[in-house]
């Protein structure tokens, strides 16, 4: 299994028989929704589309997997989304096969996609890995695989001797407690890779996420097993070192 990191996405590529490029949480149309919460900015949608296209060109994958939350507004679809999603998908269709694992922000996404471009939201297998957005309990078929998911938008605060030196999006990789599956197969290790969000405006600190987990997957991640990686694949310590501060 060959792994490659694309920090400009952020995106990750896995190559075995097939070369697959993974991105997560594009949240197209977020600017339109942000207006309701007091932020008034022109859309950065075209820049996001450009970023995705250049990732695809750089990797030239056999397939691009979008791990959910392509759109932002729930429920409904804003004007902005309507145009930007059409632009995104038609541009993608010209250069690569792709599929979407619908996320919690994606109701109504079907109208923009062909049926073979939509995957089951509880998760499915592509190549040798499981894919899902991450807001649901994973499909039992994923047990024993490496699962890639979005939904968690992980970010980490890297500290040095004096204080926080850098805040960055990050990957979190760790084992999943098998009890998340209806039929527990103790002998099979299921691993999870949380992919950072491609949307540049959002991010949730991992500290908060794993102290009060908000999804079945974040609840089931075995903290002692988990590691943190920066978008370019730099190792950033184990997860627990970021959660525990007080000197013993």
């Amino acid at each position: 299994m060959n792994i490659d990191f694309f920090p400009n996405g952020p995106a990750v590529q896995i190559e075995e028989e097939m070369r697959i490029l993974f991105i997560a949480d594009i949240h197209m149309g977020i600017e339109h929704e942000l207006k309701k919460f007091g932020f008034h900015f022109k859309t950065r949608g075209p820049e996001r589309i450009e970023r995705i296209l250049s990732l695809v060109k750089e990797s030239s994958p056999d397939i691009l997997v979008i791990l959910g939350d392509v759109k932002h507004r729930v429920p409904g679809t804003s004007y902005q989304e309507f145009f930007e999603l059409k632009n995104l998908f038609s541009a993608l269709r010209e250069i690569t096969p792709f599929c979407v694992t619908p996320g919690n922000h994606d109701p109504g996404i079907e109208r923009f996609l062909k049926s073979n471009e939509i995957r089951k939201k509880e998760g499915s297998i592509i190549g040798n890995v499981g894919i899902m957005h991450g807001h649901t309990i994973p499909d039992e078929n994923l047990q024993g695989n490496l699962i890639l998911c979005g939904h968690h938008h992980p970010t980490v605060a890297l500290k040095d001797q004096v204080g926080v030196a850098l805040q960055s999006s990050c990957f979190v990789l760790g084992e999943v407690d098998p009890h998340i599956f209806p039929e527990v197969k103790e002998y099979e290790t299921t691993r999870l890779l949380m992919v950072p969000s491609l949307n540049e405006l959002t991010g949730y600190g991992i500290e908060k996420t794993f102290r009060s987990p908000f999804s079945p997957l974040s609840r089931s991640l075995i903290l002692e097993s988990a590691e943190v990686l920066l978008p370019d694949g730099t190792y950033a310590g184990d997860l627990l070192s970021h959660l525990q501060h007080d000197a013993k």
Binding site: L34, F37, G38, F39, H40, T155, E200, L201, T202
Partner: peptide, 21 residues
């Protein structure tokens, strides 16, 4: 400049990215 309302809801954004925005 009108980019942010006085009562904007900061939970909606990742604050460390505010400067980029």
């Amino acid at each position: 400049f009108g980019a942010i309302d006085p009562d904007a809801d900061y939970e909606r954004l990742s604050l460390h990215k505010m400067a980029d925005l």
